[in-house]
Design a protein around this nucleic acid. Sequence first.
RNA 1: GGUCCCAUAGCUCAGCAGGAUAGAGCGCAGGAUUCCUAAUCCUGAGGCCGAUGGUUCGAAUCCAUCUGGGAUCACCA
Length: 595
Amino acid sequence: MQGRYARMSDMNLFADFEKRIKTTLEGLELIKAQETPVDLARVTVEPPRDQSHGDVATNAAMVLSKPLGTNPRALAEIIAEALRGDADVSEVSVAGPGFINIRLSTGYWQQLLSAMVSEGLNYGRSKVGAGHKANVEYVSANPTGPMHVGHCRGAVVGDALANLMDFAGYDVTKEYYINDAGSQIDVLARSVFLRYREALGETIGEIPSGLYPGDYLIPVGEALAAEYGPRLHAMPEEEWLPIVKEKSIEMMMALIRDDLAALNVHHDVFYSERTLHANGAQRIRQAINDLTFKGHVYRGTLPPPKGQLPEDWEDREQTLFRSTEVGDDIDRPLIKSDGSYTYFAADVAYFKDKFDRGYDEMIYVLGADHGGYVKRLEAVARAVSDGKAKLTVLLCQLVKLFREGEPVKMSKRSGNFVTLRDVVDEVGRDAVRFMMLYRKSSEPLDFDFAKVTEQSKDNPVFYVQYAHARCASVFRQAKDAFPDLDLATVDLASAAAEISDPNELQLVAKLAEYPRIVEAAAIAQEPHRLAFYLYDLASSFHSHWNKGKENPELRFVNDKNRQLSIARLGLVHAVACVLKSGLAITGTAAPEEMR
RNA sequence: GGUCCCAUAGCUCAGCAGGAUAGAGCGCAGGAUUCCUAAUCCUGAGGCCGAUGGUUCGAAUCCAUCUGGGAUCACCA
């Protein structure tokens, strides 16, 4: 058995057969006879659209017919004949315009299942990302208050993408950029100072407009009062401001980390924008010098904005990044007319820092409202890394909240917005996480509080978790049926090789898609594909379970047939592992029971 | 006005490094079941993949233009 598994060059069935087919092609006389080497890059091996066609399909004949100067059907017949020599192939046929459909032997499926069981939770891991260092930056909410529901989607998508890429072999860092350097931090500090005075017993009345009114700043004021007493009050602003800033940022970040933890989001690196500004903005100066050295920086003026001219528009000379030469629509200011650095300048320095830390793939997960920022970030990547680093921006479209079909209204002004914590507390982190992934991120998402907590098959979160719980339930039943069976020591991997019912082999085929889905989703940076796959797998499992209602022979546990039951436990275990591993990537729990 | 995202069944959406008869859920129409392995199950009808051109043996998928929806435009962060 080990020997058989060793022959499978890859746990990814399709990758395995791609290699086999390409090897077969290279061995064909017709191909060896060509003077110029034949390019096999466009040959793909995929699951056929319709299962009745077979288990594996390849377009080889259609892609190669032109360079070989033959017609696709005839070529397909030649290739098909060669593939029939593979012991794991039970049937090869040619269909349509020249597709080659391959049906695999029962033995192959059995060995594959056996290997899946052996791999357990590692089944599906890939090496496609090996050798790549990826930095996934997400959330990066301003440290001026608790996280708002609008941050949820980016947080979940970024986190799941990072998990997914890790599973696909990338060396991944989850990073959070703390915007702790801008003028909004001054506003924060002044708002907190008011709360500090309040904590000292002063009556502050209504919070002036332009300051943050939220109650969450009260504890910061109290902490300052407890720590400094009235001393801050006696200081001039330039003295108390840094102290209050420091404390405010620290406490706001603690708040945000708590919010993130509630969502099961954990970053590896929290990178402070202030470190770029430290020591006379050393990092930023270096980054700009670097760009200047490469000829990307000049002093000049920008053309006025197109369309409606702002009333306060005036022509000013600034230090500009010639981003138009690296794909941007307009050159971008690095230094303001008053000599201070723009936010964008810090971003250049931040990107350079990431590049210098050795990342070759930077991913920015942003809200759709930052769409206008994408081109300049890409320009930065090209200029700073000389095109060596890949930068991708994932734009998440907005989430609309509903309650029983009615849109939830939010007013930011009153400080009375829906927080991330409100949502997590009400529906649970699993529902939030899974539902945020159950849509392509470039598509707007409707989130209904009632629907996502519904305990029915109409709710994908419940449906997938329920499938996992059912798997656990099978094991509990097995224990009842065979009290002497020691599940800890029984060799499920070997036992699973006896599965032969076509319905069950279909389930194995569904499991066989997992590695392919992982790779495709990681490469496309689309974690939602995994969520859809899990739903699909759960659906196959439930459907098979339902067949057991009609036909007790198909039930997993049959107390009259111990050996068959154990073999089926192997299958159920494989299903449970894939569900659990996939759910873990989405950041959702895989419960043992649903009560 | 420029840029980006989107348009697929009645509804909500998958499908996209081009492939065969375009899928799922809900809803709808029929049928089964009161059983229990755990929150019913099975079957069916729904389509000019926004429009028009182009690339190709082959396009929902790639390119261009257009239409209709959303986002964005700054010495803000």
